[in-house]
Design a protein around this nucleic acid. Structure first.
Lengths: 127, 127
DNA sequence: ACTTGACATGGAGCTAACTCCATATGCTCT
DNA sequence: AGAGCATATGGAGTTAGCTCCATGTCAAGT
């Protein structure tokens, strides 16, 4: 598939796809005889993984490091696992932060009711 | 308390604290007679909230909007609630993304074992 | 009085991660 | 063939959110 379709399928702009390729995150994307990118299904899988990790806050730097190792083959499996485990820990930390903020927001939102109701009462009694 | 203590207590650099103040996120911080900031406990509560929301990915822009309304008093309660609810939805979405990435990472990490073990066996048999 | 260290201010600088642009080439349709 | 549209490339520009710096003031210790 061409870049426009990949862009649409994964919700990543063509510019960003070319950028990812340039910095080595996607490996080499095959081209047709006139130099146009023809993404394979395997490329699609990579892109989906990258998108998922980016959405989870993994840095471009870590992704580049991971993918570079990946493209080097099986000899790098142990090193890659270390990166993934570190990433997992960061994500768990992030989930904890988010949960804390969520609890706090829910508490605040619930208590806004306590304030709004009297405020509305005051308005009504002012009529 | 002075800026250094606040910085240490909440893990935010003095530069960032001054920056937050400048863009209106913290309101006016009281000064002593020689112009030095003397943060009150209330300022501390605000800072803690800001830190929590920033850690949860709330943008500076949204925080500024929210805090500006907050400092305008009770008339803005309804508007503030809307912002918090929107933020809550974003956080829930983010948690979902993170959970998805986490599942994926755990799956990958578990399967790395499947690859590493044969690789290690190969090494041992090569000795 | 002098040195030292925390603090203040305005503005410049920085990093990550895109995003946009000018220019060029190629495919497709009529 | 000409029009119109997708794509390619190299490089500049953008945005968010800080972070650093030069310069200056002030309070406390010696």
């Amino acid at each position: 598939m061409k870049i426009a379709e990949v862009s649409k399928r994964y919700g990543i702009s063509p510019d960003t796809l070319r950028y990812y390729e340039r910095i080595g995150i996607l490996g080499e994307i095959p081209r047709n005889k006139s130099g146009i990118r023809e993404y394979t299904e395997a490329n699609g899988k990579t892109i989906e993984f990258v998108k998922c990790m980016r959405d989870a806050g993994m840095s471009i730097e870590s992704l580049t490091e991971y993918m570079t190792l990946f493209f080097q083959g099986d000899g790098t499996i142990a090193a890659r696992k270390v990166i993934l485990e570190k990433q997992r820990d960061e994500i768990m930390q992030r989930i904890q932060n988010l949960q804390e903020a969520l609890d706090r927001l829910n508490f605040k939102i619930d208590h806004y009711e306590d304030n709004i109701v009297p405020a509305e009462k005051a308005m009504r009694s002012a009529l």
